[in-house]
């Protein structure tokens, strides 16, 4: 009951948030410089062509009317027609979304696989050389620009050593595990550094906590302590961190998908921006916002499920 009420409250709060989101998206795109009609018809188009396009897109209407149209259409699931793709924007986005979702989840999985064990090693060896070495390596990973790492991995592991394909996307789950390894790894290098940092800190915090000291004093085996207290706490903090980092992860796909020629929504966003594809920019920004909100909500739920104390707040 309590959690249902909590979800209801969260959903209710999302209404005004999304009203603001819609205003931001609408204004952003209306303020873009350059005539969208030129973007559609090209530099060679005649003035009459341009006027006709403006008329057709309703660009001559007052801003408020345009916003109302935008709002009502969006609520009906109509994001307009992509100028670039000559197809409904929603369809274009939905076509590309699974690729980005796969890439993001893949990157998260890799981050956990990399950061998890190393964080334990670092925390249990706190202050000694394994800790210092692990932290130093991740610190460097944190400071590396995604686009440069991507390029280096691509050049040496793919083109030279031929361990992986050079960019693009494959068919089916297992082929893509191989095909998308490098882009996922590129994103994971950054994410795993954040996860490692956070996980190490939370493990140390638990190890230092009084109840764990007490458990140890009672003679509970360290495996039990690790299992019961440390893992659970670590899980809560990692879920929270990953949930809150979803925006960063998505940002990472923008550059990574471009470098690795992965046809996802990240690359689509850049293509749409460079092509001044208004409906597509609007649709994509909205899609990102919806995704992030959904992940935030999900994070909250998982968190309250893992940590009953949270439900009370």
């Amino acid at each position: 009951m309590q959690s249902l009420a909590y979800i209801a409250k969260r959903l209710l709060l999302m209404v005004p948030t999304f009203a603001i989101v819609m205003v931001i998206i609408f204004l952003l795109v209306r303020l873009l410089p350059g005539d969208p009609a030129i973007a559609i018809a090209g530099d060679k188009a005649s003035d009459a062509d341009l006027a006709a396009i403006r008329e057709r897109l309703g660009l001559n209407e007052p801003l408020l009317v345009q916003f109302w149209l935008f709002l009502t259409n969006t609520l009906q699931g109509d994001l307009g027609r992509s100028i670039l793709m000559k197809a409904p924007a929603l369809g274009v986005i939905l076509d590309r979304l699974p690729t980005t979702a796969f890439l993001t989840l893949y990157a998260v999985t890799l981050s956990l696989l990399i950061a998890g064990p190393l964080a334990f090693v670092a925390a249990l060896n706190r202050g000694r050389w394994p800790d210092a070495a692990i932290r130093a390596v991740f610190q460097v990973g944190l400071s590396m620009p995604v686009f440069y790492i991507g390029l280096v991995l691509l050049t040496f592991l793919a083109a030279r050593a031929r361990l992986f394909p050079v960019g693009g996307i494959g068919h089916g789950f297992f082929e893509n595990l191989h095909q998308l390894f490098l882009p996922a790894m590129t994103i994971a290098l950054y994410t795993s550094a954040i996860v490692m940092r956070n996980l190490r800190a939370s493990i140390i915090e638990v190890l230092d906590a009084e109840y764990v000291q007490f458990a140890r004093a009672k003679g509970l085996s360290s495996r039990l302590i690790l299992g019961r207290h440390v893992l659970r706490n670590a899980l809560i903090s990692t879920v929270t961190l990953l949930g809150l980092s979803i925006g960063n992860l998505m940002s990472g796909t923008l550059v990574t998908e471009t470098v690795f020629a992965v046809p996802g929504v990240g690359r689509l966003m850049l293509e749409a921006i460079f092509a001044r594809d208004y409906p597509l920019i609007q649709g994509l920004t909205l899609t990102f916002a919806v995704l992030v909100s959904a992940v935030f909500l999900l994070t909250d739920l998982v968190q309250s499920w893992l940590d009953p104390r949270m439900r009370l707040t």
Binding site: A158, V166, V259, A261
Partner: peptide, 12 residues
Amino acid sequence: QVIPDDATRILK
């Protein structure tokens, strides 16, 4: 295959 990035296209 669409490979917008010049360097990646040539690597391929």
